[in-house]
Design a protein around this nucleic acid. Structure first.
Lengths: 261, 261
DNA sequence: ACCGTCGGTTCGAATAATAAACCATCTACG
DNA sequence: CGTAGATGGTTTATTATTCGAACCGACGGT
């Protein structure tokens, strides 16, 4: 693995629950030698991606990330457009909603919204890359990808995250066919045992699948009624977001979603 | 220079005016060998910091930057807090307003706001790191830094950006004393020949200078009247932002700013 | 005074980055 | 149609950079 990748992996250790990390702990968490870790962090620091703060000289993300993000949003305003849609989706369903985009063969979560309706909710703060086979978003996207990309993904090793994760390529392929026929995907605890989620695919201007929109809830709150409400809201939001991002819904999907409204 | 720094410099080539760059052009702009450039970009791409798009396979900033920025803002919400203050400042003065923060000895611009009042305005889109000696923000910050950091900065080479840039360390030190006495800084074309700006320092909870707040205008619009309006708005906004960021204004500054209100 | 941990540094050995040349592909243009 | 010059991407031996064990001084608790 290249040096740059190591440095970037260090960046990924910062999460909502662990926003500041000292040098030694960083080295421990990353399995990188402390000296190496120090040098890498120093380089990141020189470019403002991280900064050191306080007497303990702990590292945290620096001001330069704001510039990068503002620049990306100025050029490709996805997150900003998605936020109100997400918030409405979270409000209507009472559950956690999140969007992810397909980028270079990876599905990356870019925004999420919570609902205050219940004392428990699914936390999405620290999720970056979604595994295709173990999440509803991933399966929704995969099911609507062209055949080549889909089979390529199915041939990669399918890691089991819970007892409910589907790891058999043949069975997964069948499931993807079902999902493509339904127009939405469902994951019953495939990512985290207690999390149940529904997802719909999103499409770009060429009509290719470009991301996923999902609602995740504790499995205990999943009922036929709630499922109906969720799917209706999800398809409505999916239609809206696809449009906001300048995409077009394939007619086949449009038909299936109408049936769920 | 380390490999990581090279990769990060590639990231800095993306600007508002040049948001997508092909491989060959990237290599040309960065003076890095094309093969090297390709490898570096591939590593950045694997982590989602950049993505390739379109038939030309041009690179642009990727979705991962959104996560980093959201994480930073969740932990240190500076930008979000600053935006309304900046917008109001831009509105009242009719000119461009911007904030910068001190991080690891560098002054980095983190947000700016424009006014629609005039057909010409100062553009801050592509400015990342502000030179201390050539900008009003830089001088305002430098003047309120502790002696050691200040002299350290004065000993670095002072690059001349325009005919009006002060590059004599002794004269600059005198100017910093004047600025400290006034409570604000003024730069008459020290950064760009046609840009005139005023800035005030911002302070953290320990009362140490942590950044700068500035208003920049074309020099032709600077009049005694406008200067008075600008300084009043600037000190008001500086007081507000220092408070929003959880800082405390040193009493000496407070007094000076009252006189300008 | 001891022990463990912290951030930071050193230096020879080992590894990863480098640059030039090379491909295949595309577009422009005569 | 065919050439010329772009482009993105790949390979190679050479070389420079990165690596990691051990070390340092400082701090905090026992």
């Amino acid at each position: 693995m290249g040096t740059v990748s190591k440095a970037l992996e260090l960046l990924d250790l910062f999460t909502r629950g662990r926003p500041q990390i000292g040098l030694s702990e960083l080295a421990r968490l990353s399995d990188v030698n402390k000296a190496t870790c120090y040098r890498l962090m120093s380089e990141l620091q020189n470019h403002g991606l991280v900064e050191q703060v306080g007497a303990a000289r702990e590292y945290r993300l620096g001001p330069a990330v704001l510039r990068l993000s503002a620049l990306r949003e100025a050029h490709v305003p996805m997150r900003e457009a998605a936020m109100p849609v997400l918030q409405e989706l979270a409000r209507v369903t009472g559950e956690t909603a999140h969007v992810s985009v397909l980028s270079c063969g990876q599905l990356r979560s870019i925004a999420h919204a919570y609902s205050g309706a219940f004392g428990t909710k699914v936390i999405m703060d620290d999720v970056h890359v979604l595994p295709f086979h173990a999440t509803s978003s991933g399966m929704a996207v995969l099911a609507h990808l062209d055949g080549a990309n889909q089979t390529a993904e199915l041939q990669k090793p399918l890691l089991s995250r819970t007892a409910n994760t589907e790891t058999d390529p043949a069975k997964l392929a069948q499931r993807l066919r079902d999902i493509a026929a339904l127009g939405y995907a469902e994951s019953a605890g495939g990512y985290e045992a207690e999390v149940h989620s529904f997802a719909v695919p999103l499409f770009d201007s060429a009509g290719a699948c470009s991301g996923g929109l999902a609602v995740a809830s504790p499995r205990s709150r999943v009922t036929p009624d709630q499922t109906r409400v969720t799917l209706a809201a999800l398809t409505r939001a999916g239609r809206e977001l696809t449009e906001l991002w300048g995409g077009t819904l394939p007619p086949a999907i449009d038909d299936k979603w109408r049936a769920l409204a």
